[in-house]
Design a protein around this nucleic acid. Structure first.
Lengths: 243, 243
DNA sequence: TTTTTTTATTTGTCTGACATTTAAAAGTCT
DNA sequence: AGACTTTTAAATGTCAGACAAATAAAAAAA
């Protein structure tokens, strides 16, 4: 397939890169079987453990799947939306948690992208999506809800809004922006008063989407963004931290 | 650290998951050193190669980095924007290429997200970003340019537009949407006439951004989206394929 | 023909060893 | 004492060979 220079550094990484490139440029097709580990070892002139480490790297990115037994082996994996979602969320979450991203910046990015979805969602949303949004609003009105459960429902509400656009690529992209925010949101304690405001805005958004009014949905998302920011600011200043 | 059940399936995956969870929930801090491979092997009651396979999985996601020599080992890695970009682009590209996503859907998602950036970029763009946009427009006007080089410049132009918003989270998210489209765009042959139209729209967008007019930038992005779609449709129908 | 058994192939794992890198400790010289 | 050199120990990177477990295909038996 490809050859590695005898640079003595990280053979398994080089092999993984070679195979990844072959997958990405179409040399290796979905569901195609890779040579067995022994054969790969021979081709690349390395040992089997080295090949295995390379394959595990690819498996970690869902690029291949392996199957034991006769006529088993490693197969090029079709990257499913579900796998892509998962990776997207993991990466986004770590990026936010490890890089001192301000709440303001993360919030801005998230609502900007949601506003990108809103007009499409208002135009196309199914009754199903609307029902989900209403159901989550109802849940958020329950008095006994913990902050964490409130945030989870919030995520579900926004997911429904985004999915209403009926564009799986948008849903995939937004998954990272919306879900990765949850740990940050969980830090905030939602008072009864602030919940009331947020739920009211959620209702306003759902109304706009129901009425197929994309512009109004955008406006109300902006209002929700402002509300969220103000809330975060008050919480952070109360604790003496920066937003 | 954590324990694996004696389910005899994929020990290395279980170990990788255990360590990944420890990183994501904060048990393991950035730059913290993991126990040595031998120690991990003992802790999890597996052999060193199995531990190594687990570590390679994590390394593939840039969650850890390894260093040889005395006081070397595996360290929790701070996920840099660069690494996150790369992963985002890889995942997005594969998702598009492996799942028969229509050009229409991908295009819609990309331009929707770019419109999300446009108002912010119009408000905040630096002279630098504007200069990059103008430079790429100039490059795109060169007659001898190959289709591929034209597409590359197109990506650079849109990257500058997105980066102008000054929000690294948005830039990271958009990287996937914009760059992953390139292989799809490369399929299209740009005639002299179509290039002229696109470059004119790029200029119009740059003008709007220079004038700090976000709404106009959005409108012109929409026009560019319509143009791109029309162009793709004509190319695909000429070849008897669906868009 | 159908069912069962065997067999071969392939991944998953283990053991043990050696090579290479690297920082710190030990030693040596001025 | 201080600066330089050498040694040493610890860690990852790699290799070789082996066995276990799963699995599908081939062979055998009913």
């Amino acid at each position: 397939m490809k050859i590695d220079p005898n640079d003595p550094a990280d053979l398994s990484a080089q092999i993984a890169t070679a195979i990844r490139d072959a997958i990405m440029d179409g040399t290796l097709i979905v569901d195609e079987r890779l040579p067995s580990e022994s054969e790969l070892a021979e081709q690349f002139s390395v040992s089997r453990p080295t090949v295995r480490e390379a394959l595990k790297r690819l498996a970690a990115q869902s690029l291949i799947r392996t199957q034991r037994g006769a006529s088993g082996g490693a197969f090029v994996n079709r990257l499913s939306y579900k796998d892509a979602y998962t990776q997207q969320i993991t990466t986004s979450t770590l990026l936010l948690s490890m890089n001192a991203v301000s709440f303001t910046t993360a919030c801005e990015a998230r609502y900007a992208m949601e506003r990108a979805c809103a007009p499409l969602s208002a135009a196309r949303r199914s009754a199903d999506h609307l029902a989900t949004m209403r159901a989550e609003i109802h849940r958020q009105s329950q008095p006994g809800l913990t902050d964490e459960a409130f945030c989870t429902s919030d995520v579900a509400f926004h997911r429904a809004l985004v999915d209403g656009a009926g564009n799986p690529i948008l849903s995939y992209q937004l998954a990272g922006a919306v879900e990765a925010m949850q740990p940050l949101m969980n830090i905030i304690t939602f008072t009864a008063r602030s919940r009331e405001t947020i739920v009211a805005l959620h209702e306003a958004i759902a109304d706009a989407v129901e009425a197929h009014d994309g512009l109004m949905a955008c406006d109300r998302l902006s209002a929700l963004e402002a509300e969220t920011l103000a809330l975060a600011r008050s919480v952070f200043t109360a604790r003496g931290k920066r937003a």
